[in-house]
Design a protein around this nucleic acid. Structure first.
Lengths: 320, 320
DNA sequence: GTGAAAGCGCTAACAA
DNA sequence: TTGTTAGCGCTTTCAC
């Protein structure tokens, strides 16, 4: 329709140089009229590039991960990549996913969200012709995006200490993969370090597991409140657990922040309404930054291996 | 490595018939040892099948849509399909997405979630060699999954009437695409029908827009409470708006359900904790059913066009 | 600046 | 039951 060869069509439509502008125009108009798009599997086969990247998360239906995926999707679709999502709830499935991704070249890039890789997996991915970016753990062989979880625990605890609290409960997450998922441990470490720095010795009875869920936070807080000497404040490792804590206090007839101060982590959508003081970690930015680094890798613009840290900040509201 | 031709490898690995079991075993072992997987773009090009399906949602970072996507992903990955996600926030982007999907054959199946198609879009998709399933609107040309939104509005309102309420507020969603997004209108219709059936004439001042968000529900409820004759109960079209309503009541010093009864729709993760009475619509099942119907289409097992309805049920808790 | 032609790594006839 | 071979629809050399 444009009166040129298939090679010229290919060059023109992909914006390559050495195509006369008049020719490019004719080709583009013809493509438009025919609603022609190159077949991805054919161009992928010929060029070796699929323009497809894959993101793996532990679960899809959680506030945190859907924010990350949304952030990544926005960047990637902007850059012309399609995004395949996979839920990888167990270490076995993680291994299967990594094997498959490394071998099949279905995607040319991979974002592993809060899925720490073991040495064998790292080796498989390193050997594969694949861009890899990780999130949530301190990976040195691939570009990664992390937050300072020790710092988060410290900052949150410090805020409660600044408010005059010394008896501070801890709603811990729970590590399903204790070998590698370090977030809860790091935040707990920050909590302990801060207490020590303030001259308070941590009371292990004040630490409960809340499983990063609202229901877990509710149950854990209820337990803490049954103590003979309950805490006057609590640091929840996620806002969702903090919501549970707020509700447990409410059920116990306590006022917040008078009887119980609460601080969370995330700045969840509901945090503002609930007046929850929190350490905001701009979750969608985790996805955005990871995707940007991946695009850099795929387009050959470096992106040195190693972690990039996303900033966090305290947002004071009415629960403290 | 298995001592056979590429054709036999292809047949053996895809589980086709007419391969000796001993041969299949040798091929599978060799593939395992070499970590060989067929290159998707090559097999896609040769066979015409990409084993890739695409799901489009208005936004990714919302409770509702992440549940739908999670449900679909579970079914599709089980069936051997990869799932590409795209956020399509505006009608213009919807058109672009539909054009691209129809023309490029990047995916062989499409799930459109709460993205009503206009006639031109339906025509493009119908003409394309593509399986299509829609969700959330009553599509007759493609298989679709729907809920009885009029029924939801009726059931919710009836429950409040059964509790003795006659002055019942309505927290409406808001339709961004008023031409096609019928959910809010349908639920409002159910509300009105129920009131009429009970001999109550709807008061338009009791209907507010809450934009399907918690913040919107909070603001809308606050407004209703400022009325000289505020409602004694409120039907929120989503649990997230209901959370806002609960909080507005709390801020106004009202007790729930004594001073204000609240009912929502969804059975959101937090509904149980908040004690929210709601019309459960098993959101993840929307994704599951849509994905299952798509797989049927792609595998040639029929799946007649037209809507399949997902059931809803009342869950009574303490806000009514 | 453009065209001809040789693949990319598979699958699907067809033959054996 | 297995092998041979001709594509699938592009991209990419290499000529011109």
């Amino acid at each position: 329709m444009a009166g040129v060869s298939v090679a010229t069509v290919s060059r023109a439509l992909r914006g390559l140089p050495n195509v006369a502008e008049s020719t490019r125009g004719r080709v583009e108009r013809a493509a438009e009229a025919l609603n022609y798009h190159a077949l991805p599997s054919a161009s992928g086969l010929a060029s070796g590039h699929s323009s497809n990247v894959s993101i793996a998360v532990p679960v899809l239906n959680s506030w945190y991960f859907s924010e990350v995926v949304a952030g990544a999707e926005a960047v990637l679709s902007e850059s012309g990549y399609s995004l395949s999502v996979t839920a990888v709830p167990s270490p076995e499935e993680r291994l299967g996913f990594v094997r498959g991704s490394a071998a099949s070249r279905a995607a040319e890039g991979l974002i592993m969200v809060d899925l720490p890789l073991d040495d064998a997996e790292i080796e498989m991915l390193r050997a594969a012709p694949l861009g890899v970016v990780t999130t949530g753990f301190d990976c040195v062989v691939f570009p990664s995006v992390v937050v300072d979880n020790v710092g988060i625990g410290f900052k949150a605890t410090q805020h409660l200490i600044d408010r005059g609290h010394t008896r501070i409960g801890l709603l811990n997450g729970q590590s399903e993969d204790p070998l590698h998922f370090t977030v809860p441990n790091d935040r707990a470490r920050g909590y302990e370090q801060c207490l020590s720095a303030a001259g308070v010795s941590p009371d292990p009875r004040l630490a409960c597991k809340g499983n990063f869920s609202t229901a877990g936070g509710l149950a854990a807080m209820a337990e803490l409140l049954r103590l003979s000497d309950p805490p006057s404040a609590v640091f929840a490792m996620s806002d969702e657990m903090a919501f549970g804590a707020i509700w447990a206090a409410r059920n116990a007839g306590l006022s917040i922040p008078e009887d119980l101060a609460v601080i969370g982590v995330d700045n969840h959508d509901l945090a503002e309404m609930m007046g929850l003081t929190t350490i905001c970690q701009d979750v969608d930015q985790h996805g955005v930054v990871a995707a940007r680094r991946l695009v850099e890798v795929l387009e050959g613009r470096g992106a040195a291996a190693g972690p990039v840290e996303v900033a966090t900040r305290l947002i004071v509201r009415t629960t403290t």
